[in-house]
Write a protein that binds this DNA or RNA. Structure first.
Length: 477
RNA sequence: GUCCCCAUCGUCUAGCCUGGCCUAGGACGCCGGCCUUUCAAGCCGGCAACACGGGUUCAAAUCCCGUUGGGGACGCCA
C-alpha cells in the first residue's frame, strides 16, 4: 500500500432512491483506492434537488454502505447544508463576469430544445442572455456559467486514457437555479474543490460532464483533480441495470442471504481483475486494488457467478460467524425459537454440515428445517419406496444397537452401522437410504452419521422408531 | 440528430501499453466422468471467443484507419 500524497476521494450519491449495485460498486472502487493509498474516503450526499431527495433514501445509503463495510473518514456531508457556499462562489463568478443572469423561463427553454431536436440541430442553449448584462434581474432568473467556446478540453482519464472535447460544443450551464439552489455540475465542482478531492472516481456516464466541470474549476481558481471513469454495470439484456433485472437495492442482497464480503468480492471483480484470482478477502482487495487493471468496457451483472462467490465465502468463513448471520434467516423461516433451545455450538455444527450445500444463508435456513424442528415432513414418494416392511427387521436391529452405543460419536456410529450391514448381507445403500428417510424425511442429506450426531441419540432413536412404524404400516407390493 | 466511450468463449476476465512465448489462459454456467451411504463439495475431462474489412510488419488478439454493433451524454436531474 503505497501512500500517494494525500489521496482524497469521495462517493457522492443523490438520495433519490435506494442504493443500488452500481452505486455500491462506485463507492467500493473509491474506498479501495483510498484504503490502498492510505488516503481519505469522503461521503457526500448530493441532495440539491429538494423535490426528489428524501431522508429515507439517505438512511438507505448509509445502511447499505455499512452493510458492505465501506466506512467513511469524513461526512456524510449534505449539500443542502452548504447552500451558502455555492451561492457565494456563484456570485463571485458573477462579479468576475464569468457567469451571467439568464431570464429565459424553463418553459421557453424546453420549447426551444424540442424545436432544435425536431430540426436536428444541436440541443444547446443559444446564449441569448449571455451579453444582455443583466445586473439585477427583477423576477425569476438563473445564473449561467460562461463556458469557453474556443479550443478544446483534454481529460487525461486514469481509466479511459486521453479524451478530447471541442469547447465550441460546450453549453452555458445553469449553476444557480431561479430558486436559489445550485445545480449538480456546479455544486460538485465547488465541493470537490473545497474538500480537496484529489481523484474523482465515478461512473462513465459522467465522462461528458467532465469537460463542463473542468472550466468551472479553472474559473474558481482551483486545481483540477484527476479523473477516473468506471465502466457501467449492465443487466443480462445488456441494458443499464435497473429494477427489471431483479433486486437492485444492495440491502435486498442482504435479505437474500448473501455475505457482505461476497458481495464486495463479486463487485470488485466486475470491472477489475488481478490476474486469474477470483476469490479475495477484504484485505487482499485493499492490497491489490489498482486503477490500472480496471476494465474500460461495461460489464454484465451475472447472478449465477455471484451465487458461486457467495458459496465460496460461506465455505471459508468461520462457522461461528456464519451461524450468527444465519439467525435472522432461521427466524424468518419460523425456526428461530427452536434453534435457540439448542445447546451452545449446535448451530455451528449445523453450519459445518450445510456450508458446502448452501449457496446463500436463506438456502441454509431452509435446509436446516428437519434438524431444527422436532416434527418431520416426509417426502411421500421416498417413504413409499424406501420405508417398506422388508426393511423393518434391519431398522429395528439398528435402533436397538444404537440405543446401546456408549459413545454416540460419528466414528462409533459408523462402526456399528457397518457391522450390521455386513451381518445382514446388505449393501451400504440398502440400509442407508431408508435410515436417511427416517431421520430427515427425504433422500438427500449430509452424511448419515453426521446427521445422527447433530440430532443426538434421543431424536435419532425416536425418528428411527417412527420410521419403523411407517415401514410396517405401508402395504407390501 | 450532435458529441463521447467501448468491442477476447453465453457471462466475468488474462493477454494488448512494451507485436513473435497465443494451435488465446483462468473463472462462472453447461455437458461427461471419478469419488461415494444420498445430496452437495472436491477432483479430472469436454464444449465455447480475438465483431468485420483494410493497412503497417518477416510476424497482429496485440499498432493504425474504416465499418458495424453496444453503451453513455446532450435538464432550472444527479
Amino acid at each position: 500500500m503505497k501512500a500517494m500524497n494525500d489521496v482524497r476521494v469521495r462517493f457522492a450519491p443523490s438520495p433519490t432512491g435506494y442504493l443500488h449495485i452500481g452505486g455500491v460498486r462506485t463507492a467500493l472502487f473509491n474506498w479501495l483506492f483510498a484504503r490502498h493509498h492510505r488516503g481519505q474516503f469522503i461521503l457526500r450526499i448530493e441532495d440539491t434537488d429538494q423535490s426528489r431527495s428524501t431522508d429515507e433514501a439517505i438512511r438507505a445509503i448509509l445502511d447499505g454502505l455499512s452493510w458492505v463495510g465501506l466506512d467513511w473518514d469524513e461526512g456524510p456531508y449534505r449539500q443542502t447544508e452548504r447552500l451558502d457556499l455555492y451561492r457565494q462562489h456563484a456570485m463571485t463568478l458573477f462579479e468576475q463576469r464569468q457567469a451571467y443572469w439568464c431570464v429565459c423561463t424553463a418553459e421557453e427553454l424546453e420549447a426551444r430544445r424540442k424545436e432544435a431536436q425536431a430540426r436536428g440541430l444541436p440541443q444547446k442553449y443559444d446564449g441569448r442572455c449571455r451579453d444582455r448584462q443583466i445586473t439585477n434581474p427583477g423576477g425569476e432568473a438563473a445564473l449561467r456559467f460562461k463556458a469557453p467556446q474556443a479550443g478544446e478540453t483534454v481529460v487525461e482519464d486514469l481509466i479511459k486514457g486521453q479524451v478530447v472535447f471541442e469547447n465550441s460544443l460546450l453549453d452555458d450551464l445553469i449553476i444557480l437555479r431561479s430558486n436559489g439552489f445550485p445545480t449538480y455540475n456546479f455544486s460538485v465542482v465547488v465541493d470537490d474543490a473545497l474538500m480537496g478531492i484529489s481523484h474523482v472516481i465515478r461512473g462513465d456516464d459522467h465522462l461528458t460532464n467532465t469537460p463542463r466541470q473542468i472550466p468551472i474549476f479553472h474559473a474558481l481558481g482551483h486545481a483540477v483533480p484527476q479523473f477516473g471513469h468506471l465502466p457501467m454495470i449492465l443487466g443480462t439484456d445488456k441494458a443499464r441495470l435497473s429494477k427489471r433485472h431483479g433486486a437492485t437495492s444492495i440491502l435486498a442482497y442482504k435479505e437474500m442471504g448473501y455475505l457482505p464480503e461476497a458481495m464486495v468480492n463479486y463487485l470488485a471483480r466486475l470491472g477489475w481483475s488481478h490476474g486469474d484470482q477470483e476469490i479475495f478477502t477484504g484485505q487482499e482487495l485493499i492490497e491489490k486494488f489498482s486503477l490500472d487493471h480496471v476494465q474500460k468496457s461495461s460489464a454484465v451483472f451475472n447472478p449465477e457467478k455471484l451465487l458461486w462467490v457467495n458459496a465460496e465465502h460461506i465455505k471459508s468463513s468461520e462457522p461461528s460467524r456464519v451461524a450468527a448471520l444465519l439467525r435472522p434467516f432461521l427466524d424468518q423461516a419460523g425456526l428461530g425459537a427452536e434453534a435457540r433451545t439448542k445447546p451452545a455450538g449446535w448451530l455451528e455444527q449445523l453450519v459445518i454440515l450445510f456450508r458446502e450445500r448452501a449457496r446463500t444463508l436463506a438456502e441454509m435456513a431452509t435446509a436446516a428445517k428437519p434438524y431444527v424442528k422436532d416434527e418431520l415432513a416426509f417426502d411421500e414418494k421416498a417413504v413409499k419406496k424406501l420405508l417398506t416392511p422388508a426393511i423393518v427387521p434391519a431398522l429395528t436391529k439398528l435402533t436397538d444397537r444404537l440405543a446401546g452405543v456408549p459413545d454416540f460419536s460419528q466414528a462409533e456410529l459408523e462402526k456399528v452401522f457397518k457391522r450390521l450391514v455386513e451381518e445382514e448381507g446388505m449393501k451400504m445403500g440398502q440400509l442407508a437410504q431408508p435410515v436417511r428417510v427416517a431421520l430427515t424425511g427425504g433422500t438427500a442429506s449430509p452424511g448419515l452419521f453426521e446427521v445422527m450426531v447433530l440430532l443426538g441419540r434421543e431424536r435419532t432413536l425416536a425418528r428411527l422408531k417412527k420410521g419403523i412404524a411407517l415401514a410396517g404400516r405401508s402395504t407390501p407390493s
